[in-house]
Structure formats: structure tokens, C-alpha cells
């Protein structure tokens, strides 16, 4: 497992587009949005979170785009299947690496921008944790979309997995409202942690079955 994490980390490090691109886009969207519309700070504070949520959704999709495509095209997925007879560990380590090196930094950027737009400094950690957990869920879902569409392009991935992201968006929205109004945050975050564990355990299994279907 550790070997796989090491391999995936080094692979991701050299794919500059995959990790730097989403972060830059996140910064760009969050910076450009207040500039592009002429509204008061009061109004901006009210719905700036929506922009953070949408940017998170967009960037996590961008980050996972082509997650398995390259490995599928160059035969390394097939090779891994011959060695391990299963993709579970490969998928698990891949998602882990992506969440750690792309998901968490994106959540950090989102939290910083929310802080700059009226969120109390004491809530910084709460926002960061909510965004990180949402990213964990979204990365799992979009990895599934990527495994389904493998080499058929991003359009198919969006169409198949965006509806599945609906519950995550609802949860994140509820978490953010609970931060803004100052009640029920612990319950929501516990639910998100529970879902995070559950999805992180089950989704690699489903993705593994999906990838096996492509290899078979």
C-alpha cells in the first residue's frame, strides 16, 4: 500500500496540469467573481459561499479528469491487475494521493477566501474541515465518473457523476449554513465524516469493478 502511495505521488507530481491547474482555477474564479460584478460587500458576503461551493465542484472535477485514462492507455492498469489481481488498493491509494495533494490545498484556498469575505476568524477551521470533507466525497465520486468514462472524454464523466454530487452539495450547503448561523455544525460534520469513511471504503471497490469491466 505504501509502495502504491509513493508511486502515485510521484506520478502526480510530474503531472503539473492535474494538480496546479485546479488550484489556479480556484484562485482565479474566487478572485474574478467579486471583480466581475459590482455589488456591495454586504451582498457579496451573503452569497460568496455559493461561489466557493461551485468552484470546489468544478475544480475537483478538473483535478480528477483523466485520473485513470493515462494508466489505461499506457497499459499500467492492466499490469497492475496482473500483479495484484485487483484494483482496490491502486484506486484507494490514487484517491488518497489526489485528496491529500489537490483536495486539501483547494479546501485551504477556499477557506482563506471565505475568511477574506466575512467569515469570523474562529470559523476558519470549520470551513476548512467542511470543504476538505466535501472534497474527499467529491473526489471519490468523480473518480468513479472517470473510471466509467475512462477514455471517452470529460463530457461523459460530467453527465454520469454530476447528479451523484447532489447529496454532497446539499451536505456542504447545510454545513456552511450551520457555520454562518452558529448551530448544529458538529452534527453535520459528524455526518460528513461518517459518509467520508463509508464512501472512501466502498467507492474504491465500485471503481475497481468498473475498471475490471474495461480491462476484461
Amino acid at each position: 500500500m505504501f509502495r502504491l502511495i509513493k508511486i502515485e505521488s510521484s506520478k502526480l507530481f510530474y503531472k503539473l496540469k492535474s494538480w496546479l491547474g485546479p488550484m489556479l482555477i480556484m484562485i482565479l474564479v474566487l478572485t474574478a467573481f467579486p471583480l466581475s460584478i459590482d455589488i456591495s460587500q454586504f451582498d457579496l458576503e451573503k452569497f460568496y459561499f455559493s461561489i466557493i461551493v461551485v468552484s470546489l465542484l468544478m475544480t475537483s472535477f478538473l483535478a480528477t479528469e483523466g485520473m485513470f485514462e493515462e494508466d489505461f492507455e499506457d497499459g499500467s492498469l492492466e499490469q497492475e491487475y496482473l500483479v495484484e489481481q485487483d484494483f482496490y488498493k491502486v484506486v484507494l491509494s490514487k484517491i488518497f494521493v489526489y485528496v491529500c495533494f489537490i483536495g486539501v490545498p483547494i479546501a485551504f484556498i477556499g477557506a482563506i477566501f471565505s475568511f477574506a469575505n466575512g467569515v469570523a476568524i474562529g470559523n476558519f477551521i470549520n470551513v476548512f474541515v467542511s470543504l476538505s470533507l466535501s472534497n474527499l466525497l467529491l473526489f471519490n465520486l468523480f473518480a468513479f465518473g472517470n473510471a466509467l468514462s475512462i477514455n471517452k472524454g470529460a463530457m461523459l464523466g460530467v453527465l454520469t457523476t454530476l447528479p451523484l454530487a447532489l447529496p454532497v452539495i446539499i451536505l456542504l450547503g447545510t454545513a456552511i449554513r450551520s457555520i454562518q448561523y452558529g448551530n448544529g455544525f458538529l452534527e453535520i460534520i459528524s455526518l460528513m465524516i461518517g459518509m467520508g469513511f463509508l464512501i472512501s471504503a466502498i467507492m474504491p471497490l465500485i471503481i475497481s469493478t468498473t475498471l475490471k469491466t474495461h480491462i476484461d
Partner: peptide, 17 residues
């Protein structure tokens, strides 16, 4: 609306391979 998109996604996925 999301359910409608899901149906379209399923059909598109089936037609892609």
C-alpha cells in the same frame, strides 16, 4: 431535473462503448 440528467447520463454511457 437531476433525475432527468441521470437518465440522459445512463443512455449516453451505454451509447459510448
Amino acid at each position: 431535473l437531476i433525475l432527468f440528467i441521470m437518465y440522459l447520463g445512463i443512455l449516453t454511457l451505454h451509447g459510448s462503448f
